[in-house]
């Protein structure tokens, strides 16, 4: 590998100073699973790698009155095992458990995952369906970024130079809400999903939908919210017609990439199928 400097500050403040001093030539490393590959392939040549591993406060996972707070340095493995995560939504824990393989889950972190903005990833989809927001900080202060505005393009986020992702906040779910994450893996079990769908819904006493979130992975260059599909469900019972209509609207909202995991048209159709399955699961 090509030489670079490595800095490993003990505090967040130090880290922000280092980043601010040379944001263009400093890359931030959390777990490092994606970054190290880019470095090895010599696709990026930073002057400096800023390692976050000593900043323990970024590792915390906590349930609060407002909901759930997930530290950016929490690994996928920690999150999958966390009772607080499971208590918030079992689907969230199982989403983290569905990421890649055990080795990656033990090394890769939530923050690294979000900042890398790989459109094939699992956690952003479920976090989006759970109304997650990222909190980032620079020397100039903290900023809350709803996840549907964090991802701007393939491997691109709205994080500003000098900003570090600190945590993800999830609001409490409505009472009796149900959530699911469906990952379509038509080839090997360790593959990226062809498409994935997360859904979170709640219904009133008569079975009418009072809350609907549908998020799609592999459906575009960024994780998507299927807002029209969500709207179509509001106030309705989860009968066949409602579910199919929402699935069709979700499929229509997609703009997938043709790649080794499927053609754009196939992915679009599969978003329909898996949205329908997700909704039947939580209906």
């Amino acid at each position: 590998m090509r030489p670079f400097d490595y800095v490993e500050p003990e505090t967040l403040e130090e880290a922000l100073e280092i980043l601010a001093a040379d944001p263009d030539d400093t890359v931030v490393m959390a777990g490092g699973t994606s970054l190290v590959i880019l470095l090895k392939q010599d696709l990026i040549r930073p002057a400096r790698v800023l390692g976050l591993r000593r900043i323990a406060e970024l590792r915390a996972i906590s349930a609060t009155d407002e909901g759930l707070v997930l530290g950016a340095l929490a690994t996928h493995g920690m999150l999958a095992r966390s009772p607080a995560v499971r208590a918030h939504a079992a689907a969230l824990a199982s989403t983290f458990a569905a990421v890649a393989t055990v080795r990656i889950r033990e090394q890769a972190t939530l923050g690294g995952n979000l900042a890398h903005a790989d459109p094939a990833q699992d956690p952003p989809v479920t976090l989006l369906a759970l109304d997650g927001a990222a909190v980032a900080r620079s020397r100039f202060g903290e900023r809350r970024i709803p996840l549907d505005t964090l991802f701007t393009d393939l491997f691109e986020t709205s994080l500003e130079p000098g900003e570090l992702l600190l945590r993800v906040e999830l609001p409490r779910l409505p009472v009796a809400a149900r959530a699911t994450y469906q990952k379509f893996l038509p080839a090997t079990r360790d593959d990226y999903a062809t498409v994935s769908v997360a859904a979170a819904v709640a219904t009133d006493a008569r079975g009418a939908c009072t809350h609907a979130r549908i998020a799609l992975g592999g459906a575009a260059t960024v994780p998507l919210r299927a807002r029209e599909a969500e709207r179509s469900l509001m106030g309705r019972r989860f009968d066949d017609a409602a579910i199919r209509e929402a699935a069709a609207l979700a499929a229509a909202a997609t703009d997938p990439i043709d790649d080794l995991r499927g053609s754009a048209s196939y992915k679009r159709a599969m978003v329909g199928v898996w949205t329908e399955r997700a909704l039947r699961e939580v209906a």
Partner: peptide, 26 residues
Amino acid sequence: SVGVCGLCTVQVDGAPMSACLLLATQ
């Protein structure tokens, strides 16, 4: 060399990890 095959699996504090994706400093 991209963390997929598992040939370089070692235990780091008991957890399996890819030695090809870890900097020694980590």
